[in-house]
Design a protein around this nucleic acid. Structure first.
Lengths: 234, 234
DNA sequence: TGTACATCAGTGAACGCGCGTTCACTGATGTAC
DNA sequence: TGTACATCAGTGAACGCGCGTTCACTGATGTAC
């Protein structure tokens, strides 16, 4: 807690570098990130950055870790805010936060889910747990909804392939309670749906087709929740 | 038809350049494409490429146009092959081709649906019609299935938002027959679902979660078709 | 209060590299007579 | 059949540029006595 007083605080600068790096990526794309560009924007020289990140790679890794945590945090906040609401409201809030965060931080979302940066690949042992994090809480809501009898799995999702089913146990352990196979299939379907819409929105492919991605996203989520009988048709 | 005989054929070289460019992108990512890299791989010098593509940008544009056409062609071929099959089989074949082509040509798929290449943006008036192309045929199948009474729109997709509904007319014209609003919503939902699963597969995010992306894809498509009553539960 | 020393963020020059692009050219091939 | 000319894909040198990274350094700040 005792940090050097008047003296410059290194943590601030490290954070500033990351902030400017994100701005640079917004301008020039994730692959357009350069140390010299960041330095110029900050009014310092490029070698100064080496005091904080020994290699460009380390900076990118830090940005990716931040992105994963920020997405998880956004979804967690939505879960907390609605923890006393209906299952439908909780799921709407959490998956709504997924899109909202992506739209507000498109570069960070691309850092997680987009094209890899040439010559760089994030260490998998670092990213895999981070990638799982935001979904554990969501799965808990589903399982709870099913156990209380509020959620009904529709017939069309009954027959999860065996090759997929063997991955359920690991998730059951992480979530803290077993997950029935059809529910697992239904949850991954939900992930695919929201992810597809978000990606099509971020790459500007869906706007010319439907015009209003936000409205369609709500419509899709509502349809999904209706099918699980967590939401009634209007 | 009368091309110079013994003389070198420029079209072959132009095609070879694109082929090598694709290989380079596979190796180094879409952003890692360089004229010098292509030239080196081909055993020629970089300036020679200028005889075929006056700028690097033109080469990339050519690659993108090729990618759009190849995806459309793959989906069209699937449609033709199954044109006398059931509606379910036809839709399975077309959306199956979407994933199949993406998995076999990940770089080209990223060129269409992925992160933009830094400093380059494809001319929209060129890409928009190309982007629509593969879906027109698919929509025709849906509309036909609905008009014959084979397809039933589930209740949860009834209320398409107004802001989205106004985009339907344009599609109705392209497809050649009016599209009911709930069917339109259902179709876009289907696009989002398959696109999400494909993107998660290409970026290696879904393998650690479900293990077998191909099996899950079929499961999801079947669930979708069952819900439309185009396929019965086993 | 004053002096000597340690710390360390940031500087500026330099490195080697690969990039897109230009330019005058070469040399093999095809064409006209 | 032989010669002169036109065509044009490809060459090799050169350009200016921005990149990541290294290195010895400076100079402000904090610390010890």
């Amino acid at each position: 807690m005792s940090r050097p007083k008047g003296k410059h605080n290194g943590q601030d600068t490290a954070r500033k570098i990351k902030t400017v790096a994100r701005q640079q990526m917004e301008k020039y794309g994730t692959a357009g990130l350069t140390l010299r560009g960041i330095a110029k924007e900050m009014g310092i020289t490029a070698p100064a950055i080496y005091n904080y990140y020994p290699r460009l790679e380390d900076l990118i890794t830090a940005l990716i870790v931040d992105a994963f945590n920020a997405l998880a945090e956004a979804m967690h906040a939505a879960a907390v805010e609605t923890s006393h609401s209906s299952y439908a409201a909780r799921i709407q809030a959490i998956v709504g936060a997924y899109r909202q965060w992506a739209v507000e931080n498109p570069v960070d979302f691309q850092l997680i889910y987009g094209n890899p940066i040439p010559g760089y690949s994030a260490p998998a042992e670092l990213t895999t747990p981070l990638a799982r994090k935001p979904f554990i809480e969501l799965m808990q809501v589903y399982v709870e909804a099913m156990n209380t009898g509020a959620l009904h799995i529709p017939t069309e999702y009954q027959d999860l392939p065996d090759s997929v089913a063997q991955y359920i146990d690991g998730w059951g352990q992480r979530v803290g309670t077993p997950i029935p196979a059809p529910l697992f299939g239904q949850i991954i379907s939900g992930w695919g749906r929201i992810h597809g819409l978000v990606m099509l929105e971020l790459t500007h492919h869906i706007q010319p087709v439907i015009g209003d991605p936000a409205a369609f996203y709500s419509y899709e989520v509502n349809a999904y929740l209706q099918r699980l009988e967590l939401l009634s048709p209007k």
